[in-house]
Design a protein around this nucleic acid. Structure first.
Lengths: 230, 230
DNA sequence: CGGCCCGTTGAGTTGTGTCAAATGTTGTGG
DNA sequence: CCACAACATTTGACACAACTCAACGGGCCG
């Protein structure tokens, strides 16, 4: 039973591995559509998300795990535009230039559906079309919020905003279990890993947060973080 | 005829005042919908865009002029998320927190339509629903590109990218006529006006651009700018 | 002509990046 | 279960790109 115990421990420390769509959301038209015309694919950690086969546009829905979407400059500078958790939908284009712009952060199950299939369904179901648009508009709102962070917030404010965002999105109370590395956080916040680390140390120094393990963070003083959030 | 001459000169130097939707695009489902259920409103320079009357969500289409959308922090730091030129559609929510997040940059004519009216039309017209979504997805793509700029590009690269973007979006060949102030550019690029100014001087020094008047810029060496664009 | 606004230039400061080393964590094979 | 390797994170010292504050210049309008 030793092996069993270890497995349980690992899961306890990695809640995002088991949290799935069904446990978090009631069904919605897009999730339903994915179940109809999509298929579930399992991905390793750090694998590029793609549908094998001919180049075409796809929709992806995170079932379990976590995903980063990003853009890179020629010299390798990377900007992560969003993290995607279970339930989130990613729309990827079969782009000519940058072939991959989505990767798993943790072992993940992703439902994959051809864009054309979803679009065909949406033509016949206004509430599906509406749901797709609603989600895209939400993503746009988040992007606008993130541009404010990237363009106008300092390092400490960025990290505080990030922690609040992740806490809001995760179901666990009090603490956040971060599925991504410091490098991912840095590339999301437009900083370096060193600056992220220093900012965390700073926040810990003012008792705004507690750290138990690199990726488990407890928000001890939310209002202090909110103040930094702007 | 002196007054007439001055007016003509002014127009010649401010092409965005006369460039309208009809001269740039063939009709599309959303523009058609605006003509059906929207009304045109004239705004002064630097006015907050809003539909008067009860709080509700609206769509706006720029007919002539130019608009900035933005977010601000409590202490006044501002991030412009996009500039909108004739033909572009802005979706604004009757937000509880920040009441105004769109302002005209130049005297503008804006078509205003209630969100519910457009949505109702879209329920009956799949190609309209599709067009709305297509535009939102395009905005999201632009936002992702802009996050890369804000998070990972240096000042000179940001300004170069900005000039290329504006040149691509304006119909005039060779040169760009910028409708916005240096402060607007700075708040779009996540810089200060001084840094924008210095970057322009730098680009001029390397013969990448020419300046004739503060807001008229000629791209003399596009490939040099492209290289900075990444 | 004079005042005002906007943009540019200059000098000095500072927050974040860079480079390097130390420490902690995770995974693997014996 | 331990020992070691490989990797991730933190900490430190220093450099530099962009910011701040200030002065100057030019165009526009009354």
């Amino acid at each position: 039973m030793q092996a069993q115990e270890i497995a349980v421990n690992n899961l306890a420390r990695r809640p995002w591995l088991t949290r799935t769509v069904s446990t978090r959301e009631t069904s919605d038209p897009l999730t339903d559509a994915f179940k109809e015309v999509g298929r579930a694919v399992r991905f390793e950690r750090n694998s590029e998300i793609q549908a094998d086969g001919e180049p075409a546009d796809y929709f992806y829905q995170v079932v379990s795990g976590a995903v980063r979407t990003y853009k890179v400059l020629d010299d390798g500078r990377r900007q992560i535009s969003a993290f995607h958790l279970p339930g989130d939908v990613i729309e990827l284009e079969a782009s000519r230039n940058h072939r991959f712009s989505a990767e798993t952060i943790a072992p993940s199950v992703i439902r994959v559906a051809k864009r054309s299939a979803i679009v065909a369904l949406a033509e016949r179901r206004p509430e599906l079309a509406n749901e797709i648009w609603r989600r895209t508009a939400n993503d746009l709102q988040s992007a606008q919020e993130h541009m404010l962070l990237l363009g106008r917030k300092n390092a400490e404010e960025r990290v505080a905003s990030f922690l609040l965002e992740m806490a809001d999105r995760s179901s666990t109370e009090g603490g956040v279990e971060l599925p991504m590395s410091r490098q991912d956080i840095a590339d999301y916040l437009g900083l370096t890993i060193e600056t992220v680390s220093r900012s965390l140390t700073l926040l810990e120094g003012t008792s705004a947060i507690d750290r138990s393990g690199n990726r488990r963070i407890r928000l001890r003083n939310r209002s202090a973080l909110q103040r930094l959030n702007g």
